[in-house]
C-alpha cells in the first residue's frame, strides 16, 4: 500500500494525451462487463415485466407451460374485477396510501430541514449530543420493538383503524434529520448565514430565505426516499388498521389471502400498487441516482 501511494503521480492524468489514453483503456467496458450488465438488467426488469404481463392475461393463460411472455388483452377486465372485489377495498387502500405517504413526506421534510439547519449551522449547548442521540437511535428498530406500546397508545387514544395511527409514528425519521444536516453543512457556507445575521435577519428568516433555497435539491431526494418508504410500510398498518380501511399494501395482502389463486387479479393489484412509484422514478430517476450516490458513505 505505502509503496503504491508514494508512487502516485502528483496530478490527475485526465488529459487525452497518447500515453494516458492508452493506460486508461483498462476502464473501458470489456465483453465480460457487458455480459454482467446485460444479465443484471434482465434479472432486474424481468419480475416487473412479468407482473405487468400477468395483469393483461387470464388465469387460464397464466398457468400455461411455458408461461406467457407477451401482453394479452384482458387488462381492462382484470381492473374491473379488482375494483369490484369488495373484501379487498383496493381503491380505498390506494387513496389511503396516497394520503398517508404525502402527509408523512411533507412533515418529515419540514421537520428534518428545521433540525438539520440547527445542527449544521447554529451553535447551541447540547447540539452535538442531541445529533449523536439521533444517530444512535437510527440503529434501533423502533417499529418492531415498539409495536406493543404503540398499539396500546392507539387503543387509549381511540385511533386504531384511523389513518392518524399510521401517519404519526412515521414522522420520527432520524435518517431525514441526518441527511439534511449533512446537506446543509455542505450546501450552505457559514459566511452566508453570518452575513444575513449582520443584516439583522432573525433565525427563522435565515431559515426561510437562505437555508430552504439552498437545501432544495436535497429536500427533493429526501422527499422521494421518504415517500417510497412510507408507501412500502406493511407491518404497522397490518396491525393497527382494519381490513375495511386499509393501505394499499395491506389491501394486497388481503387480496392474496382471499383470492390467492386468482393470479391475474392479484397481479393487477400489485402492478397498480407499484405504478405510482415507477412514475416518480421515471420522472426523477436521474436525481434519485445522483442523490443516492451523493449521500453514500465513502472513504
Amino acid at each position: 500500500m505505502t509503496a503504491i501511494q508514494s508512487r502516485r503521480p502528483p496530478a490527475h492524468s485526465r488529459r487525452p494525451s497518447g500515453q494516458s489514453a492508452a493506460r486508461n483503456r483498462i476502464w473501458d467496458a470489456g465483453p465480460l462487463t457487458k455480459v454482467v450488465l446485460a444479465f443484471a438488467l434482465v434479472l432486474s426488469a424481468f419480475p416487473i415485466y412479468y407482473m405487468f404481463i400477468m395483469a393483461t392475461r387470464t388465469n387460464e393463460e397464466a398457468i400455461d407451460v411455458p408461461p406467457p411472455l407477451l401482453p394479452g388483452g384482458h387488462l381492462g377486465e382484470n381492473i374491473s374485477r379488482l375494483l369490484s372485489t369488495e373484501d379487498a377495498y383496493f381503491m380505498t387502500g390506494l387513496v389511503n396510501s396516497a394520503i398517508v405517504s404525502v402527509t408523512v413526506t411533507l412533515s418529515v421534510v419540514l421537520i428534518s430541514t428545521l433540525a438539520g439547519f440547527a445542527f449544521a449551522k447554529l451553535r447551541f449547548r447540547g447540539g452535538k449530543i442531541l445529533l449523536g442521540l439521533i444517530l444512535v437511535t437510527m440503529m434501533v428498530p423502533l417499529q418492531q420493538m415498539g409495536v406493543v406500546p404503540l398499539y396500546e397508545l392507539m387503543v387509549t387514544l381511540g385511533w386504531t383503524g384511523q389513518l392518524k395511527a399510521v401517519i404519526l409514528p412515521f414522522l420520527v425519521n432520524g435518517f431525514g434529520v441526518f441527511m439534511m444536516t449533512q446537506y446543509a453543512t455542505q450546501a450552505v457556507p457559514d459566511e452566508l448565514v453570518e452575513a444575513a445575521r449582520v443584516d439583522g435577519a432573525s433565525t427563522m428568516r435565515i431559515y426561510a430565505n437562505v437555508i430552504l433555497p439552498a437545501l432544495r435539491p436535497g429536500m427533493a431526494v429526501l422527499a422521494l426516499l421518504v415517500f417510497m418508504q412510507t408507501w412500502n410500510e406493511f407491518m404497522w398498518p397490518l396491525i393497527v388498521l382494519n381490513p375495511d380501511n386499509p393501505v394499499v399494501q395491506t389491501s394486497i395482502a388481503a387480496l392474496n389471502q382471499a383470492h390467492g389463486t386468482d393470479y391475474v387479479m392479484l397481479f393487477t393489484g400489485t402492478a397498480a400498487s407499484v405504478l405510482p412509484l415507477f412514475i416518480v422514478f421515471i420522472a426523477f430517476g436521474r436525481q434519485i441516482v445522483g442523490g443516492l450516490m451523493e449521500g453514500a458513505v465513502k472513504a
Binding site: A40, S44, M51, N232, N256, S273, V274
Partner: peptide, 15 residues
C-alpha cells in the same frame, strides 16, 4: 439496477 428497489416489498413477494 435500481428498478427492484422502487418495487414495493409486498409486490416483490407476490411476484
Amino acid at each position: 439496477v435500481l428498478l427492484p428497489l422502487i418495487t414495493s416489498v409486498v409486490a416483490v413477494a407476490v411476484v
